[in-house]
Design a protein around this nucleic acid. Structure first.
Lengths: 231, 231
DNA sequence: CCAATAGTGTCTATTAGACACTATACA
DNA sequence: TGTATAGTGTCTAATAGACACTATTGG
């Protein structure tokens, strides 16, 4: 234990989350208004210090922050990237480990009340939210959106934004919304069947004034299924 | 500035590198023997503290470590992932930001002398090096190998391990080596042409007792080109 | 019966994979 | 002329994309 083991030589480290959900109008991200300096009063991605006495590891820290802000415990969660530099935080050399979380529509409905006070869902427009964000969070959000849009092409990601039970048509329409283009129904269903990430709920049908639709759920709500080819 | 701003609450943070090159017998990774506790005397991935007075950002820290260990300045470098937990380092809660670096065969030849004393290239066998490594470095190495093997399928990654000038046959044989299977020459060349990441060197041919082969170089040594489909 | 959406089938233009062929050097 | 590897062409089986068709409900 030779060197760099005192405060001045240690960067500060936080975990920040890009938490996404589907609002009625489209993909949205959860933002919080900062209470303290720096950037007091500005919007930011939810985040917090690593609690060395409380968090067993990085993912646990991310889950703790998520629970504090939304009340949700077991969503889809993946590490995006880590940024760190001398200048991104005026308090000094700082590191942010960024996670992406996807909340199902059920999570939002149930936990609207449990949401921390100064938090708000903001609709995604283009590469961000049309607001300036604290720190380098606008750039982090842009990276998160890039990752999400890329994964829509070849994974079950959109399924994690729907309520627990949904029809194939509902799933297809989320894909189309996130991709910004229409998909062929037949081809879509072939890919979904191949990737094999859905389980039909026996006997449960969505009824309307047309042929009833089979209702499905994800086989695994915590991992993504990948397609062999693009959707 | 309210809380968690003293040493006891701050995790320690290092940058660690999985540095790969092609040795005559195959893909190899650079390991160093640790001089100090913890894990003194054991093999580990090269790494080091972030120098808050010297490194502008995380990537700069990674490049500094790389230069210290190998003398190489501008290889392909990408962030892999960040691990952090209470238990991975006996000194306390610690974070490691892991980078992958690919060195061209030229880099190795030139800098063999400049390499730090207790560093050694170890051949990859299966999911690691057949050695126990310090900290969680065996697991980090396994992740790095997964990323590399995955990217061989759909990117120009193998080109970054060759010397600056190479023929298409040499490139194909690196793909085959990393994938562990033979590729069709015609299909391989179609993909490479589509991805458009090579520049023929005008008039430069590799001569032997057969038809001479066109020599190529990468258009960009610091970024990967991606294929539309798998190789 | 009509309207509306669910779900499946069919046809064709495109492409991937296997394989063969031609080209060009040195010995 | 023989041998070895470079580089290109061809054929076919598999596939994707467009589109059409059938199925099943409520009104």
């Amino acid at each position: 234990m030779t060197t760099h083991d005192n405060d001045a030589f240690r960067p500060i480290a936080t975990v920040d989350l890009a938490i996404f959900s589907l609002s009625p109008t489209g993909l949205s991200v959860l933002l919080v208004r900062r209470a303290n300096a720096p950037f007091s009063g500005e919007w930011a991605l939810p985040g917090g210090w690593i609690h060395v006495d409380e968090d067993a590891n990085l993912e646990a820290a991310a889950r703790r922050v998520l629970k504090e802000k939304t009340g949700v415990e077991t969503p889809y969660l993946e590490q995006l990237q880590t940024t760190g530099s001398r200048t991104r935080d005026p308090r000094g050399w700082s590191i942010s480990i960024v996670y992406i979380a996807l909340l199902s529509a059920d999570d939002i409905a149930e936990r609207q009340d449990a949401m921390a006070g100064e938090a708000e869902w903001r609709l995604i427009e283009g590469e961000g939210v049309g607001l300036s964000l604290a720190f380098d969070h606008a750039s982090l959000l842009k990276e998160a959106l890039g990752r999400i849009r890329s994964k829509v092409e070849y994974s079950s990601l959109p399924g994690h934004l729907l309520p627990a039970r949904f029809t194939l048509s509902e799933l297809q329409s989320v894909y189309e919304h996130l991709l910004g283009r229409k998909l062929d129904k037949s081809a879509f269903r072939k890919r979904v069947a191949e990737a094999d990430f859905l389980k039909p709920i026996e006997g449960e049908m969505r009824r309307a004034s047309n042929r009833p639709a089979q209702v499905f759920r994800l086989k695994d709500t915590r991992t993504l299924a990948l397609f062999d080819r693009t959707i």
